[in-house]
Write a protein that binds this DNA or RNA. Structure first.
Lengths: 241, 241
DNA sequence: ACCATTCTCGTACAGTGTACGGAAATAATG
DNA sequence: CATTATTTCCGTACACTGTACGAGAATGGT
């Protein structure tokens, strides 16, 4: 047999998470691995941090690690799985052991800010999270912490899990938007073109509200402040069940 | 010159939205187009609806409309642009002319539900929206309506635009999650494997909160109800400035 | 010494987006 | 009407992707 880690299931897409995360340890038999899942994942993360998710190709990662391309497949059954490994790898940067205040709303907000900071450090993360995702050990440790923060509420289990999932989704969405905005700001020609386009549309007479909105700009808000405001709204609005 | 619609700007990625959406009309000169942007876009949308976004390749779309592959490039400068055309195409399904109640929160909630319904009808939409996006005419018409709904508030222009953007992002995030959930439910082996994995993790003693959450399931909530709850929280929490 | 096992990786293949450039069609111009 | 400019059509080709296959190398158990 060719790859202990991932004999596939009954035709379904994706990899059995149990095999992936709790896979059997080496038997000792056979050739020794020349690389490690850790090292490969770290290289892929470094690549994504430096050049974006599109730069993460099997060939690039292999070159970075000094392996042959196909050797990667001994450590991850396919590229999608490698992405999941990357996600869990950076999830390890999230602190899971500080004290909780006991004010679950405050704790949850802190958790949201931690997630945002992580995503800003790894801008490819919101995109990678969109894909199918099984929780790896680091993500599970962080989930454990979020559940602990939610302990004071009387939400049932399913509701707690859902709150965490929604929170993560919200943060990913917001940060993804933030990143797109700042990327646009760094390409001045592009941003100017977009502004010109909107101005042209507003001037056509069929979009009075847009024209009014563009005419009354207001002071520019920092993304941080906007994030905090929306996060607070979301969490303050949660029912305690 | 080869393609009037999209002479590119100063090296920046993407296409000038003004050229794309307000491009000059035909001069009359030259060979007559055998297809249309509409038809091509509609074919791409049908393909995505039926077989998912991955099925939308230039070759497949071309075959579907009966064109040669490279002919598509006379109607859209690249594939990313075709995706934007698709997004705006389905955005045309959003109603923009019903009466507003005057209760801006209610109106905004209705807008959110419309967006959700659209995304459920075109499950690839949340994914496609994640990418860079310039507002096409249909999206602009809908934005116009959202701004009208926000008229009773005293938010400044930038804040209104931001609320719309955040609302769209939130809905996309939620529906994307909804779709992933239901897709997992339809692959029973996969879902069972995931449940087994979580159970195994909960049983390891290091995740007491997770174990507790899984033990106290609560009745399953419909996605619709969950969406409504989160949407209400978000909108009820908005400051009127 | 043999063998089962495990890992390494060169080669190959199907599939992708799209650059290039010739052929065909059309309208304006002489 | 002939010419020419313009626009569209599309076959071919290329670089690049993920990954299936399978031969060879390394290891530990017997």
């Amino acid at each position: 047999m060719r790859n202990v880690v991932h004999r596939e299931g009954a035709g379904a897409a994706g990899v059995d998470p149990q095999q992936l995360w709790l896979g059997a340890a080496r038997t000792g038999r056979g050739r020794k691995p020349a690389f490690s899942r850790e090292a490969i994942t770290a290289a892929a993360v470094a690549l994504a941090d430096a050049e974006g998710l599109d730069a993460v190709t099997m060939r690039r990662v292999a070159a970075e690690v000094g392996a042959g391309v196909m050797s990667l497949y001994s450590y991850a059954p396919d590229k999608e799985t490698l992405l999941e490994l990357m996600v869990d790898h950076v999830s390890g940067e999230l602190p899971t052991d500080g004290p909780l205040t006991g004010d679950w709303r405050a704790d949850l907000k802190a958790i949201g800010h931690l997630q945002r900071a992580l995503m800003l450090r790894h801008p490819w993360l919101p995109t990678a999270l969109t894909a199918r995702r099984t929780l790896g050990p680091h993500a599970l440790a962080f989930l454990e912490r979020a559940l602990a923060a939610l302990r004071p509420t009387r939400l049932d289990g399913a509701a707690k899990l859902e709150v965490f999932s929604q929170l993560t989704g919200f943060v990913a969405g917001h940060v993804g938007y933030e990143i797109a905005q700042s990327a646009a700001a760094e390409a001045p020609g592009r941003a100017a073109a977009e502004a010109r386009y909107l101005a042209a549309v507003a001037a056509d007479g069929h979009h009075p509200e847009l024209a009014a909105a563009l005419a009354a700009p207001g002071r520019p808000l920092t993304p941080e402040a906007t994030f905090t405001r929306f996060l607070d709204r979301l969490i303050d609005g949660l029912d305690t069940g």
